[in-house]
């Protein structure tokens, strides 16, 4: 296993790339660092969605797990006073993966638009509940105390930035490993033809269930990291349907080409929005929507395919 990992080009790129990012992060302008941090944190959820998408499934409701992760961090902070990043992540991933595991029994039977919409329904039920619960601050949400790392309370955001970079690297490597396993390599096969996969002796439902739990856990981790980076949880920016839409948006923008793509997409999205807000406070949606349209039109395999094309061309000429 370790040997194959070493040989895997993507894994090497992930480690090198994230290492470079972690080092340079310290020298970045605060706002750049911050945008990258948010983008990467969102990228984790997108990574999960990408695995599902390769199977031909897309979820319009992963804000459910994103929100569970975020609120898990908020709740363990408020009720148990847990501020350690690892413990927070464990609770968040555990809670979201557990819910994903339960709902997975229902959802694994669904495909296409029904899968997408049932996810949406579940996420909106959670949204409806959270808005009603006054002790959780209703729509205002509540704040999350500062995150510590093994008892150390860092003075600036860089420590959290580095931790998020590392968490994303670990997530990317794990997913890459999974995709290389037998079950993982069925991913695209399931999309192309489920019956054939069944004939090969694999349970499609089970394979989808595993991927679903994985994507739920990743979305939970993503929500947890974002809650820690923001210092605040609230239903409208964590659980409401536009959050799910945004995640799908980034998934498509990034493209399914590589496990690195989601992080690239997340960061690009964050910068796109920042500049759209700044340049056109009255019409930023126009810029965001136009970009989405443009990408789907000219780059249906996402930004990653653009990079691949550039690399290939360079490879040929040199």
């Amino acid at each position: 296993m370790i040997e194959t990992l070493k040989k895997d080009k993507t894994v090497r790129w992930i480690i090198l790339g994230f290492l470079a990012l972690a080092i340079t992060g310290n020298f970045m302008e605060a706002w750049v660092q911050n945008n990258i941090m948010f983008g990467l944190a969102r990228g984790l959820a997108v990574l999960g969605l990408m695995v599902l998408w390769r199977t031909g499934l897309i979820s319009f409701g992963h804000a459910l797990y994103f929100g569970i992760g975020a609120y898990a961090v908020g709740l363990v902070d408020r009720n148990l006073g847990i501020s350690d990043i690892f413990l927070r992540l464990i609770f968040a991933v555990g809670a979201s993966a557990f819910v994903g595991f339960l709902l997975g029994f229902i959802l694994r039977k669904y495909r296409g638009i029904f899968f997408a919409m049932l996810n949406l329904a579940f996420s909106m039920v959670l949204y409806g509940i959270l808005v009603k619960v006054e002790s959780l601050g209703s729509t205002d949400g509540f704040s999350v105390s500062q995150t510590t790392i093994l008892g150390w309370a860092p003075e600036n955001k860089y420590a959290l930035f580095a931790a998020i970079v590392i968490a994303c690297a670990i997530g990317a490597v794990l997913v890459q490993c999974y995709l290389k396993t037998a079950l993982g390599s069925l991913t695209t096969a399931i999309r192309d033809n489920e019956l054939r996969v069944e004939y090969l002796g694999f349970s499609v439902a089970r394979a989808i269930h595993v991927k679903y739990v994985m994507s739920a856990g990743l979305a939970g981790a993503s929500g947890a990291l974002l809650a820690m980076a923001l210092g605040q949880v609230d239903p409208d920016s964590m659980v409401n349907w536009p959050v799910s839409g945004e995640l799908v948006f980034i998934t498509v923008m990034a493209g399914p080409g590589s496990v690195i793509a989601p992080f690239l997409g997340g960061v690009v999205f964050e910068f796109l929005r920042t500049y759209a807000f700044e340049l056109a406070p009255e019409a930023w949606q126009l810029i965001v929507g136009g970009t989405l349209l443009g990408i789907i039109f000219f780059l249906p395999m996402g930004l990653w395919s653009l990079l691949e094309r550039i690399w290939k061309r360079r490879g040929v000429s040199s």
């Binding site: 948010f38 974002l226 923001l230 605040q232 609230d234 409208d236 920016s237 536009p242 929005r273």
Partner: peptide, 8 residues
């Protein structure tokens, strides 16, 4: 929403 406002 809150998250976007914090970023902005």
């Amino acid at each position: 929403g809150g998250a976007k406002q914090v970023a902005e």
